[in-house]
């Protein structure tokens, strides 16, 4: 792996994070992060979809007329999402039921289309694949952080294991119902953005 490849792979984890910097894919980050398990599955699915759609599109990029490229992109993404959906239904039925429409809605995830348009159309397959994996991981990191706080404070559990000790509840502690509601995901993402920008002056908008 060259220096450039490394940059493509790891930049989306921090300085070019799809959620906190590119501001893409926020909707699904709000919808699926109330529990850690579905958030993780979602993150893996999205990573797979971005990586492979980037790869496929990059392979055929020189044969697509620019006028119909959006349709071709949608077709590739839709096919991959259908495959993922079927795999989840076969091997992780409960989570698939929890995620319900949101797996299907990966098609509309702005990160997928964004990376196809911005990167895969103009780069070689290997670089495109790495870019897809990197952006998927950047999305995954954010999802897992948000889901961690939301599940911990909203349900007192992590990955469905009780983490908050019973003695807390006996002492008057209550789960925070607001954490389960989408607005709190937005506020947690806002906090992450706040911390990231105050540490990294380059990212601050003028």
């Amino acid at each position: 792996m060259t220096e450039k490849d490394k940059l493509i792979l790891f930049n989306p984890l921090g300085k070019n994070n799809p959620i906190t910097v590119q501001m893409l894919g926020i909707c699904s980050a709000l919808a699926v992060t109330s529990k850690l398990e579905p958030a993780f599955i979602m993150a893996v699915s999205v990573t797979a979809v971005i990586a492979f759609s980037n790869l496929i599109l990059s392979l055929i990029r020189n044969t697509i007329p620019s006028r119909i490229r959006i349709i071709v992109q949608l077709l590739i993404v839709a096919a991959l999402v259908t495959v993922i959906n079927e795999i989840l239904k076969a091997y992780a039925y409960d989570v698939s039921k929890q995620l319900s429409v949101f797996v299907g809605l990966i098609i509309t995830n702005c990160i997928v289309m964004g990376r196809l348009e911005a990167f895969a159309l103009g780069n070689r397959p290997w670089a495109s694949f790495l870019d897809g994996v990197g952006n998927g991981l950047g999305y995954a990191v954010l999802l897992v952080i948000v889901a961690f706080f939301r599940e911990l404070f909203g349900s007192g559990t992590l990955w469905n294991f009780q983490v908050m000790p019973q003695s807390f509840y006996d002492a008057g502690y209550c789960n925070n119902g607001l954490m389960i509601l989408p607005p709190m995901a937005l506020i947690i993402i806002a906090c992450i953005i706040w911390i990231q920008r105050s540490r990294d002056k380059e990212l601050q908008e003028k």
């Binding site: 209550c174 925070n176 119902g177 607001l178 954490m179 509601l181």
Partner: peptide, 8 residues
Amino acid sequence: FLFFAYPS
């Protein structure tokens, strides 16, 4: 905040 976080 109280109303939505701790309705009871």
